[in-house]
């Protein structure tokens, strides 16, 4: 499956381990969240970068403790109409997580902009959709009424624009250049 990040298809540099797979010497590895919790004592000493693969029934507050040590969080969309991961993504960003947040599963260009707005920054997508369909989908709406979203150059929050004089300090994660 192609991995979409920063408007390009790239190769995945992460090794995704299952519940039983042995740890490599180093490098980038993701671990299922339940295993991460159970084996944290040994995993904390892992020399490479760690990522966690969540399910969309995991609670953000349970993940909070590990977030400072993670460079990748993977959240699944088992079906594109199952929207739980949108909320978990926002919670994780609100908890201060700045690393890569990856969406996997059933992802369509028509949901792509929503995903970037709640903070996803990389996407495991189907071959069915060429790169240009993602680029096009990401540009359809240049405005959002909601505040505190991730945005890219050319996107604006209507309420913040209308009240630019009174808008408070931007939340820190708004400043991040957007991926995707």
């Amino acid at each position: 499956m192609p991995l979409l990040k920063n408007n390009a298809f790239i190769t995945d540099s992460w090794l995704h381990l299952g519940a039983e797979d042995a740890l490599p010497e180093g490098g980038n590895v993701t671990i299922p969240f339940s295993r991460l919790k159970n084996e944290w004592e040994s995993l904390a000493k892992f020399p490479g970068q760690l990522g966690a693969v969540l399910s969309n029934t995991d609670h953000a507050e349970d993940v909070a403790h590990f977030l400072p040590h993670l460079a990748l969080v993977v959240l699944p969309f088992p079906a594109f109409v199952d929207g739980r991961a949108y909320s978990i993504a926002r919670q994780i960003r609100l908890l201060g997580y700045r690393g890569e947040l990856r969406a996997t599963g059933n992802i369509l260009p028509d949901q792509f902009q929503y995903m970037t707005q709640v903070g996803f920054s990389s996407f495991e997508v189907s071959e069915r959709f060429p790169l240009q369909s993602w680029q096009q989908a990401s540009k359809q709406m240049s405005l959002a009424y909601q505040r505190g979203l991730y945005r890219r150059v050319g996107e604006a929050e209507v309420w913040s624009e209308r009240h630019a004089d009174t808008a408070p300090e931007p939340t820190p994660w708004e400043e991040q250049p957007h991926a995707g």
Binding site: Y86, Y114, M115, A144, Q146, L149
Partner: peptide, 13 residues
């Protein structure tokens, strides 16, 4: 109305 329009978090409830 404005706040709920195309709310990215709450469009797949």
């Amino acid at each position: 109305r404005q706040w709920s329009s195309l709310h990215p978090e709450f469009s797949y409830l």
